Amino acid sequence: MSVISKVKFVSIPVSDQDRALEFWTEKVGLRVATDQPMGAQRWIELSIPGAETGLVLFTPEGHEDRIGSFFNGSLACDDVEHAYRKLSEKGVEFEGPPQKQPWGAFAKFKDPDGNTFVLSSR
């Protein structure tokens, strides 16, 4: 038996937490789980409806060079075409339309800081 039970959250480096919070809640549809001061900084943890893993909008001091990079992971949805249409209607910038592969479909989108995310079918 493993002593680790799940991935609690993954962090997204951002330059403007308010702008990132608006993007992830208003456009993508995530929910705020925690938004509170953490010393001189702010800790924002978002929940993904139906998922155990959350996203944190936080850039540790000294990691500012990671803002605008590629998110080393994949976000999942049931229907990439549907998600692409809905998110595009809300102003989410995609690199192109969904692409089909033997394992499923995927599309890449960017947040306001230029971080790139893969959205793929389960």
Rank of each mutant, 00 (worst) to 15 (best):
L55Y: 05
D78G: 12
P37C: 04
L75W: 07
E89F: 02
E95N: 13
A40H: 12
K6P: 02
R66W: 03
C77Y: 08
P112R: 06
G104R: 13
G50D: 05
T34G: 00
F109E: 09
S11M: 09
S120L: 09
Q99K: 14
I44D: 02
E26L: 05
R66Q: 12
T53N: 02
L119T: 07
K100G: 08
P13G: 07
Q101P: 00
K90V: 00
S5Y: 06
F70L: 07
F23Q: 08
Q99N: 02
C77S: 09
I4F: 13
E45S: 07
W24E: 12
L21P: 00
S15F: 02
E26Y: 00
P102N: 03
F70P: 00
A107S: 14
L119D: 08
R122W: 15
L55K: 10
W103N: 08
S5M: 04
V14T: 06
G29T: 04
E81Q: 13
G91N: 10
D78T: 14
H63N: 11
M38I: 03
Q36F: 12
K108V: 15
G50E: 07
D65R: 09
G114C: 09
V32A: 09
E26G: 06
F9W: 11
S5Q: 13
G62F: 05
G54C: 03
G62R: 01
L21E: 09
V56L: 13
E22K: 15
P49N: 08
V7T: 13
T59H: 02
F70V: 14
N72M: 10
Y84M: 05
K86V: 04
R122V: 14
V28R: 03
D79T: 06
S15N: 12
G29R: 01
E81Y: 01
V92M: 01
D18R: 11
L55E: 08
F71S: 11
W24V: 05
I67N: 04
F94D: 04
A33G: 00
F70R: 11
Q101C: 04
E89W: 01
G68E: 10
